[in-house]
Computed example of a mutant assay.
Amino acid sequence: MAIVKPVLRAFDHAKVIEFYVDWLGFQVDWEDRPDNTPFYMQVSMGDIVLHISEHHGDASPGGTVYVDDFRDVAVYHQKLIDKQYKYNRPGLGEAFYDPSILTFTVNDPFYNKIIFAGKKQ
């Protein structure tokens, strides 16, 4: 079985930490951040693993990651709303393709999107 790890482009290490770690709840698994060079890191939350790169050519800003079958999506959504992150207040709604699925989308500071989708409880 293959493991997919999307690479998302970023431009500011502090904003990556604020968004992915402090707000979304990911952890930094490892990072390569030599002095005066672009950073590259892996963040994860449960089974979700993302690579985030400041390196030119690794990825283009504006990517989308779809997280399917996210357990307790409504609970996680409320947890994020309760943090009152000033740059993102995503709405929660039924998926257009299946009313038994709830989705919400977050937009990172670098124009990347993550769509969280999970069954209604």
Rank of each mutant, 00 (worst) to 15 (best):
G57E: 10
T105Q: 15
I81T: 06
D29E: 08
W30N: 03
F19H: 03
E94F: 02
K113Q: 13
F96Q: 15
P109W: 11
L102A: 07
Q42C: 09
W23D: 10
V16Y: 01
I48E: 12
V16P: 00
F104G: 08
L80F: 03
V73K: 07
H55A: 05
I48H: 00
V43P: 08
K119G: 05
D35Y: 03
I115G: 07
T105M: 07
E94K: 13
V16A: 06
P90Y: 00
T64I: 08
L24Y: 14
K113P: 00
E94I: 04
F110R: 13
D58K: 00
K5C: 02
N107G: 12
P109G: 04
E54Y: 00
V43Q: 02
I101R: 14
G46M: 02
H13Y: 12
P99M: 04
V73A: 06
S44D: 00
K15A: 12
P109R: 05
G118Y: 12
G63E: 13
F96R: 12
V49G: 01
F39L: 02
Y40V: 01
R89W: 01
N88W: 01
P109Q: 08
Q78L: 07
R33C: 00
F110N: 14
I3W: 02
E54L: 01
P61T: 14
L102G: 08
D32P: 02
H13L: 08
D69L: 03
D108W: 06
H51V: 00
I114Y: 01
A59Q: 09
V4G: 04
F19I: 01
D35G: 05
F11H: 13
F19G: 01
I48R: 03
I3H: 06
F104N: 09
L92F: 05
K83V: 06
V7Q: 10
V65S: 11
Q78S: 07
P34C: 01
L50Y: 15
F70R: 10
E54R: 01
K119E: 13
Y97E: 12
K83I: 05
L50M: 01
R71W: 13
D72V: 04
H51F: 08
I115V: 14
V67E: 12
Y20H: 04
P61G: 10
K15E: 10
D22F: 05
F70H: 15
K120A: 12
